[in-house]
Design a protein around this nucleic acid. Structure first.
Lengths: 185, 185
DNA sequence: CGGGCAATCTTGTCAGCGTCTAGATAACCG
DNA sequence: CGGTTATCTAGACGCTGACAAGATTGCCCG
């Protein structure tokens, strides 16, 4: 679309989408600014103008990821659904998820990124608070670790079968009912 | 030591250690074969002979990681201690941990890597089996997700305070006793 | 003991990369 | 309409990973 004009029209989004495509299929290490430029049909240095540098591009993806995650979480109304939403986000937005927690890929101190991350973290702990008022820190950490670990392992291919959200529902059921895990003490 | 001779002596280990150093401080993306060669005091193409290519190097690190993890796990005698051992491994070997589950960085199908991974996975699920014979798959996944998620978040800087293993002990206590998490159903 | 063989390392080369610079083009706004 | 600014191009630089060909060394077998 509109490959003939000097100005691209929406190069920023175009590059972002191409980058997400690459990350999803080949990982963040496979990203090349010049390749993204080629895909968008612009000169090799054009993308840099929108993102500063490569890390800037990844930072933009991370921010977008946190914002999208916040939307996913806003729908959940219960602790376990918060976890399910988290896992659903990870499976439906693998490229974003892959970048969001990789400090070394982004400008970790970018104000916009810090803000987006904080906002999402607030939604998480806030959600936990409403269900588990006392000692919500430990409970929140546990829930977050569980969801994050499951999503990460899933994305990494360590868990292979079935539907992600359903499997996650099953294992969180296990923990929350405590039926087949040993109750210590 | 022994920097004068034509042959390095133990270039392989030397490069591995340098690589681990870089990963720990700057992430896997910051690795440069030529830089590692410089650190070891050899020519720029020397490391490639030992690892084939860059992914080969990362693969070697991942293998070493799985083997070390297996040692950590072999000490644990109870499910919760298995998790603690997992977290302890991650905090004490952050560079290995960072690489082990990053498919895009390694030769994911390398036979030695596949074998090492399988062996460690066996120790994990085996450990779960002894404690939770029935439906050990869900229980194992849950425990693994929890430990892995916690370790990943910790390493990523999302969890900031206190001792990792102690904090993890606290949150797993939460789940296993089910004291302050809602018991659904 | 010695000769050859394989492992190890060096040197040189190549295309591709990220980033910087200066300059061209186009859109916008008073 | 004119100037300012955002956007994009074009060229250059040093660096990278990978490959090829050759030098050096340790080691094993005769």
């Amino acid at each position: 679309m509109a490959a003939r004009s000097y100005h691209h029209g929406d190069l920023r989004r175009s590059v972002l989408d191409a980058a997400l495509d690459v990350v999803e299929s080949n990982g963040p290490a496979a990203i090349s600014m010049r390749d993204l430029a080629r895909r968008a049909g612009v000169s090799h240095a054009a993308p840099a103008h929108h993102f500063g540098d490569k890390r800037g591009l990844l930072t933009a993806i991370a921010i977008e990821g946190f914002e999208t995650l916040a939307e996913y979480l806003s729908i959940a109304d219960e602790l376990r659904e918060l976890g399910v939403a988290y896992v659903r986000f990870a499976t439906e937005n693998p490229a974003h998820f892959e970048v969001m927690f990789r400090r070394d890929l982004c400008h970790a101190d970018d104000p916009a990124l810090v803000a987006a991350r904080a906002r999402t973290a607030g939604m998480l702990s806030g959600g936990v608070d409403t269900v588990v008022p006392d000692d919500s820190r430990s409970a929140g950490l546990a829930a977050w670790s569980l969801a994050h670990g499951f999503a990460t392992l899933w994305r990494g291919g360590s868990i292979a079968d079935g539907s992600a959200t359903e499997t996650f529902r099953a294992i969180s059921q296990h923990l929350f009912t405590g039926r087949s895990l040993p109750r210590a003490e």
